[in-house]
Simulated assay, not measured.
Amino acid sequence: MNTTTLRKDSTATGTPPPAAPEPGRTGGRSGAGRIVGQILLHTGLIALAAAILLPFAWMMTSSVKADNDVFTVPIQWIPKEFHWENFSQIWTDIPLLTYLNNSLFLSITITALQVLTGSFAAYGFAKMQFPGRDALFLGYIATIAVPWQAYMVPQYIIMEKLGLVNTHLSLILLQAFGAFGVFLMRQFYLTIPDEISEAARLDGLSEYGIWARMILPLSKPALASLALLTFVNTWNDYMGPFIYLTDNNLWTVQLGLRQFVGMYDTRYAMIMTGSVLSVLPILVIFLFGQRYFVRGIATSGIK
């Protein structure tokens, strides 16, 4: 039925034809609402980002203040006098270079071992079939819910019996394996089709070869995410070095900054200066690995 027929029928019955909607009216309303929604969303995100960055901004400004000006009321966001010499003085007040080297050594070593062990164990849980696989994986992942304080003392006794207290090897052995890394990598491996592994087996590749030559090259986003998270956690770790390391030459940067806390006074400005310097390596690594990190987190939960 065309428009002419509708007009004839309406004329015959005496009923006026329905009015056509004004062009663009409905679309204009929806378009305006969409724009308002986007403005509100971006405003909320900007406010949230500003709230997250506020402590970092305070740390940056406090790093160039005098000790007496750090906790002034009200807060002085812009110091009256900039003490740029804090960034040169801290290198002579404490052996900061030694602490940074120790933190870098532990972070790189533990990150490499966690990526290796986590990806290898995750391959077995995701791509291999053996009795009790799911139950074993569930039990292994359940250890994430157990707080570290519950088994902190038994771990220390074991390290002491082995003679590894006050060595970097104790921290490396305790943190070289992680259930979270296995979980993260397994979730990503589930997104890789099983046909790739089956075709590689038909071609004669062993399970080690499939993992190294087929699965790992496809898992760069997940590997980058695990590496970044492990590096940040190890770099920021305070309790581990505090418990196991007593030699000043073995301390990490997080432990070394404790020297500015005295019995009668605390050099807060130097603590902020050291904190700024300790954040810079993490910031650089995150900026370079941000693209892989976001992809790895976004795809690890998709089957």
Rank of each mutant, 00 (worst) to 15 (best):
T92S: 12
D237G: 04
A32Y: 07
A176R: 08
Q175H: 14
A179T: 02
W84C: 09
R267W: 06
D265Y: 11
G181K: 01
I75N: 04
P18C: 00
T143V: 05
F137K: 09
V146W: 04
L45S: 05
P16N: 05
T143Y: 07
D203Y: 00
Q290V: 03
V284E: 01
M263G: 02
A150I: 13
E195G: 08
V253S: 02
T98V: 06
Y268V: 07
P154K: 11
T92P: 00
L250V: 01
D9H: 14
G124Q: 04
A49R: 10
S219W: 05
G209N: 12
I46V: 15
Q254E: 11
F82S: 08
I144E: 04
A150V: 15
M263L: 10
L226A: 02
D203R: 01
A222I: 13
L174A: 15
L45P: 02
L113C: 14
L280S: 09
T299K: 08
R201G: 00
M1P: 05
P221L: 04
S219L: 08
Y140M: 14
Y156L: 14
L283E: 06
G118C: 11
S219F: 08
L164Q: 04
R34Y: 10
S30G: 01
D237V: 02
A227W: 01
I297D: 00
T5N: 07
N68W: 01
T111L: 06
V36F: 12
Q76F: 03
